[in-house]
C-alpha cells in the first residue's frame, strides 16, 4: 500500500512527508518529525494534550489523519515563542506557577492562544469552558485560569 505524499506548513515552515492512512497528525508530528512538544495523553480526544491548530482552528491532533494535513497550516507548541521572546501566555504560565508536572501544558497553551485570538477579553467562565477539554490533574486549574486571564489583560494593553 502506497504512502500518502503530504505537503503541509508547520509553524510557518513548509514540510513534505510520507504517511500511512492510519497515522494521525499526532503520530506524524511525534514519530516522523520528532516534534514531541505535542503530547499523547489518551488518543481518543478526551484530554487535549495533543492540541494543535489547523488553519487557525483548535483541534486534537489525535483525531485527525496525517493525510488530512495536506495543504493545511498547522500550529504547534513549538511555534508559540518567537525568537527570544516567549509568548505572553508562556510568560504568564511561568509567573503564575500554572504548571506542575507540565505534560498538559503544551496543549493548554495552544488552546489558550486559540481562545485569546478569538476572544481577547474572556470571562473566567469562558476560559474554563474553552479549556474543559484540556485535562490537568496537578493544578486544579486555578493558576491556569489566572494565568490565561492575566495574559489576556497584558495582550490587550500591548
Amino acid at each position: 500500500m502506497a504512502k500518502h505524499h503530504v505537503h503541509t506548513t508547520i509553524n510557518g515552515d513548509p514540510i513534505e512527508l510520507l504517511c500511512d492512512t492510519g497515522e494521525t497528525l499526532l503520530d506524524v508530528l511525534r514519530n516522523q518529525l520528532n516534534m514531541t512538544g505535542t503530547k499523547e495523553g489518551c488518543s481518543t480526544g478526551d484530554c487535549g494534550a495533543c492540541s494543535v491548530t489547523v488553519d487557525g482552528r483548535l483541534v486534537c491532533s489525535c483525531l485527525m489523519l496525517g493525510v488530512e494535513a495536506n495543504g493545511k497550516k498547522i500550529g504547534t507548541i513549538e511555534g508559540l515563542a518567537s525568537g527570544d521572546a516567549l509568548h505572553p501566555l508562556q510568560q504568564k504560565f511561568l509567573e503564575h506557577a500554572a504548571l506542575q508536572c507540565g505534560v498538559c501544558t503544551p496543549g493548554v497553551l495552544v488552546a489558550s492562544k486559540a481562545l485569546l485570538e478569538k476572544n481577547p477579553d474572556p470571562t473566567e467562565t469562558e476560559v474554563r469552558y474553552w479549556l474543559a477539554g484540556n485535562l490537568c490533574r496537578c493544578t486544579g486549574y486555578d493558576k491556569i485560569v489566572r494565568a490565561v486571564m492575566d495574559a489576556a489583560k497584558e495582550m490587550r494593553s500591548a
Binding site: G45, D46, G48, S51, V54, R57, L58, V59, C60, L63, M64, A111, A114, L115, Y129, W130, L131, A132, G133, N134
Partner: peptide, 9 residues
Amino acid sequence: IGSTQVQGR
C-alpha cells in the same frame, strides 16, 4: 459535543 477541540472537527 466533546471539547472545543472536538467542536473544531
